[in-house]
Simulated scan of single mutants.
Amino acid sequence: MTNRAIISTPDAPAAIGPYSQAVKVGNTVWISGQIPLVPDTMELVTGDISAQATQVFKNLAAIANAAGGSLNDAVKINISLTDLGNFAVVNELMASYFEEPYPARACVQVAALPKAVDIEVEAILAL
């Protein structure tokens, strides 16, 4: 693929496995799942779901920016939570990072996430 670009920024956590922060093909950007890692230290944000989700959305925004867009270019968001009891808090935070019309979205409860975090979010952007 000659039009495939790997997106990488120090403003988001480095990959903790064999994947890229994001891949851009044409005007579409696929952002890998982000967990609440602080980019500078690669340490996890601890505490309640609000603090964790805030860091996740900051990480997603940094990668979107590095790709030449913003979270408002998102067309699909996938959210994984270890407890759907956190659904309302995550909804409220998401609304503060995105403008209407909101992207399509799925939110599922999972048994576990990397590094035992409570949330992971991935995004697809159309620039």
Rank of each mutant, 00 (worst) to 15 (best):
M1P: 01
M1Y: 05
M1D: 03
I6E: 01
I7W: 09
S8K: 07
S8L: 00
P10F: 01
P10L: 01
P10A: 04
D11E: 10
P13M: 01
A15T: 04
I16W: 06
P18L: 13
A22P: 04
A22W: 12
V23T: 15
V23L: 02
V25L: 13
V25I: 11
V25F: 08
V25A: 14
T28D: 13
T28H: 07
G33D: 07
Q34M: 06
Q34F: 05
I35G: 10
P36E: 13
P36K: 14
L37K: 12
V38K: 15
P39H: 00
D40Q: 15
M42N: 14
M42D: 07
M42L: 14
M42S: 04
L44E: 06
T46Q: 09
T46S: 13
I49F: 15
S50M: 08
A53T: 07
A53W: 04
A53D: 06
T54W: 08
V56G: 07
V56H: 15
K58W: 05
L60A: 01
L60M: 02
A62C: 14
A62L: 12
I63L: 00
A64P: 02
A67L: 13
A67V: 04
A67T: 09
S70L: 04
D73H: 07
D73R: 03
D73G: 03
V75I: 15
S80Q: 10
S80H: 00
D83V: 14
L84Y: 08
G85Q: 03
G85V: 10
G85A: 10
F87P: 03
F87H: 11
A88I: 09
V90G: 02
L93Y: 05
L93F: 05
L93R: 06
M94W: 11
M94P: 05
F98T: 11
P101N: 08
P103W: 03
A104N: 14
A106L: 12
A106Y: 03
A106W: 07
C107S: 00
V108D: 15
A111Q: 13
A112V: 10
L113C: 07
P114H: 09
K115V: 08
E120M: 15
V121R: 02
V121A: 10
A123Y: 13
I124T: 09
I124C: 05
A126C: 03
L127I: 08
L127V: 08
